[in-house]
């Protein structure tokens, strides 16, 4: 954001986020081994790999959600616009405002639909009613759920279907105008139609946001992403254009995985 110019030059300005040699430990267990990867602005990157290979762990390193885990440890570097997000001087609250997150299971608060979307604005100190109203509507429209909920904004969010709840959670994340949106298997708990809606939504959001999505569904990765990264037991095995990864992978492990020989 406010990184000095010389730093921008050094830190590959064409990338929105980068990680360099990122290691992550849960206590003694090393869950990530030297992951280096770059994310271009307004691109969708899919993280794929068998379950337990560290996709979620990696994703959560990108907005420091792992800070909550008591005995965890991060080594290496993650940057957002060239700024080290693990620097002691960094404001985690500001970071999370710029790097939003959507979780695997839809997790709306047991509040009204309106309050759910407005929540992020309130915690960021925005109180102007008209502004909040406007932003809530805008976010719900962006998340392609406005038409379904516009007549019942004051109803509880828990009355929505799973797919609607997930789109509401996306609207909630978008309301604070993040720059990067992290999604951890956002459609895995949803039925095919809801999944399709989420995928279409990702296509539209790509115009504005940098999106990093974890998925265990390879067709989904192929459909929604520009870049695909294959993880295996805590290591980034291969990353490249989605077309290339799915048609001409360089590594044997990647090929085995995408052709369904393991995982």
């Amino acid at each position: 954001m406010n990184a000095p110019a010389y730093q921008e030059e050094q830190m590959k300005p064409e990338y929105k986020m980068s990680s360099e040699n990122l290691d992550f430990y849960y206590g003694d267990f090393k869950a990530l081994h030297g992951v280096s990867m770059d994310f271009k602005p307004r691109e969708v990157t899919a993280l794929i790999g068998p379950s337990g290979c560290g996709k979620s762990t990696y994703l959560r390193c990108l907005n420091r959600m792992n800070d909550l885990i008591p005995i965890s440890r991060v080594e290496g570097k993650v940057t957002l616009d060239g700024e080290d997000i693990y620097a002691p001087s960094l404001d985690v609250v500001m970071l999370r405002r710029k790097v939003g997150m959507v979780f695997q299971k839809p997790n709306p608060f047991p509040k009204t639909i309106f309050d759910n979307v407005a929540y992020g604005l309130w915690v960021n100190g925005i109180k102007d009613k008209a502004f909040v109203q406007e932003r809530v509507e805008e976010s719900l429209k962006q998340a392609a759920i406005w038409d379904e909920v516009k007549d019942r904004l004051q109803d509880t969010a828990l009355g929505l279907s799973g797919g609607q709840q997930q789109r509401l959670c996306i609207a909630r994340a978008l309301a604070v105008k993040p720059e990067v949106v992290l999604m951890d298997e956002p459609a895995s708990a949803l039925d095919p139609i809801a999944t399709q809606k989420i995928e279409e939504l990702i296509h539209e959001l790509k115009e504005t946001y940098t999106i990093i999505i974890v998925t265990h569904n390879m067709q989904q990765a192929a459909r929604v992403s520009d870049v695909t990264a294959f993880f295996y037991v805590g290591k980034l095995i291969e990353v490249g254009d989605t077309d290339t990864i799915f048609t001409r992978p360089k590594k044997k492990q990647t090929e085995d995985y995408i052709t369904g020989r393991f995982g």
Partner: peptide
């Protein structure tokens, strides 16, 4: 539920919030 806490955290809520 942890999920509520995570959701709030991911939106940039401070511990007091």
């Amino acid at each position: 539920p942890r999920t509520y806490l995570e959701a709030a955290e991911a939106l940039g809520a401070t511990p007091v919030q």
